Amino acid sequence: MSNVSHDLLTPLASIQGYAELLDDDSLDDTERRQYAHVIERQAKYMKELLDDFNLTMRLQHGDFPLTLEETRLEPFVRELVI
């Protein structure tokens, strides 16, 4: 849990910092778009972290149904070798 909170602080700090920069009236449109892009990218990264965390929690609690089925590995191995 502490690892997750630490990992979330980095993108959150970026989002907060760039959001504060967007409030600067001296920025031109290009800079505003760049800052907005950074915020969007960091928000997506936070979502990925949270999705991974939620999946890990589901797996640990057994809330993730797994279905066993027969699978041919030959095509997969051929693709890796080629």
Rank of each mutant, 00 (worst) to 15 (best):
A36R: 00
R78T: 11
M1T: 11
S14L: 14
T10W: 14
D52Q: 14
H61L: 13
S5Y: 11
D7R: 11
D63P: 08
E31I: 00
Y18T: 09
I39L: 08
I15W: 00
E74V: 11
D23A: 13
E74C: 02
M57L: 13
L68I: 10
L9K: 11
D7S: 12
A19M: 00
I39T: 00
R32C: 03
R78F: 07
H6E: 15
S14N: 14
K47W: 11
L9S: 15
A36S: 05
M57I: 12
Y18C: 04
V81Q: 12
G62R: 03
L73Y: 08
A36T: 03
P65K: 01
P65A: 06
Y18D: 09
D52H: 10
G17V: 04
F53V: 09
L55D: 03
P65Q: 03
L8N: 01
R33P: 01
I15E: 06
L21P: 03
V38G: 04
S5W: 01
D28L: 01
D29A: 08
E48C: 05
T67D: 07
E74K: 11
R33S: 06
L50W: 03
P65T: 07
Q34C: 02
E74R: 13
T71I: 13
D23V: 08
H61I: 09
K44T: 10
V77Q: 00
E69Y: 09
I39M: 03
I15A: 02
A13E: 09
L12W: 08
D25E: 11
H6A: 15
N3T: 13
F64D: 08
E40Y: 09
T10V: 15
R72C: 06
L50H: 00
N3P: 08
A36I: 02
P65V: 00
R33M: 02
H6I: 12
H37F: 04
V38E: 02
E40T: 10
L73N: 07
Y35Q: 03
Q34R: 10
L80Y: 03
E74D: 07
E79P: 03
D29T: 02
L22N: 05
D24F: 00
E48M: 13
D51S: 10
L22P: 02
E40N: 09
V77W: 06
E69H: 14
F76L: 14
T71V: 15
S26A: 00
Q16G: 07
K47S: 14
S14R: 14
L59Y: 09
R41W: 00
L9Q: 14
V77K: 07
T56S: 15
M46F: 06
L55E: 10
L66M: 06
L12E: 06
R41S: 14
D7Q: 11
L80S: 05
S5N: 13
D7L: 12
E74P: 01
R33D: 02
G62A: 07
D29W: 07
Q34L: 08
R41D: 12
E48A: 11
L49G: 01
S5D: 10
L21I: 02
P11C: 05
K44M: 10
K44A: 11
Y35I: 07
P65R: 02
E48K: 13
M46R: 06
H61R: 15
R72S: 15
F76P: 02
